[in-house]
Amino acid sequence: MATPTLEKAEAGFADSPYITVTFRIRRFNPEISDEATWQDFQVEIDPKERVLDGLHKIKWELDGSLTFRRSCAHGICGSDAMRINGKNRLACKTLIKDLNPEKPITVEAIKGLTVLKDLVVDMDPFFQAYRDVMPFLVTKGNEPTRERLQSAEDRERFDDTTKCILCAACTSSCPVFWNDGQYFGPAAIVNAHRFIFDSRDEAGEQRLEILNDKDGVWRCRTTFNCTDACPRGIEVTKAIQEVKRALITRRF
């Protein structure tokens, strides 16, 4: 006898019937046209499925040219940040039932980064800002034979900002970043925070100087868009505030 498989898995959960949902997607392909357009697709879907499942149904059954990034499909890899019903989210962590599927679900590329095709944006400026904050542990002197010691409390101090998956949902939700791509943006500051408040690190001053720049933390207007957008639940605005405070007090 073969391994028991789940015959009804196709129909999603046994107790939840399929519904018809309209996906309204912002399409853009410069190989075809310089203009972006909205296109509607009707999809039969279980409301407990993800927006990513809906996009896959469109790509696999209706229009193979629909283009988006994705990989892990459960909110870990950070590939599929997009603007869904006007809000930045991961398509793989957003369930249809949480979006009022009675109305069309709008899906468009995240803002502030150049759209290359459909939902795919140029991530290079985003990663450049990340690289600019020295996102790595810097230590001086001889290395210990064993591990460096760190108390559980010191470890906890920067726990929140270690969760970042570099999806760009925060940075591309920030109105300051939309208006001026020179701003480091929340994600880079989050990753600087992760090291500034790590008791093992010895380059906090250097990172603070980088963020003291005219395009650094002082551009933040505390709108909390980034905190709302973070799919990992990081208190992004709080982290930025802590960096600002550290710049004033030079204590971290």
């Binding site: 542990l137 591990e147 010691l149």
Partner: peptide, 20 residues
């Protein structure tokens, strides 16, 4: 391999003694 990662900065959970 674990100690290398710790020295590279990996934030392992810690014991009350501060070790991994």
């Amino acid at each position: 391999a674990v100690l290398d990662l710790e020295k590279m900065g990996l934030p392992f959970n810690r014991t009350p003694d501060g070790t991994i």
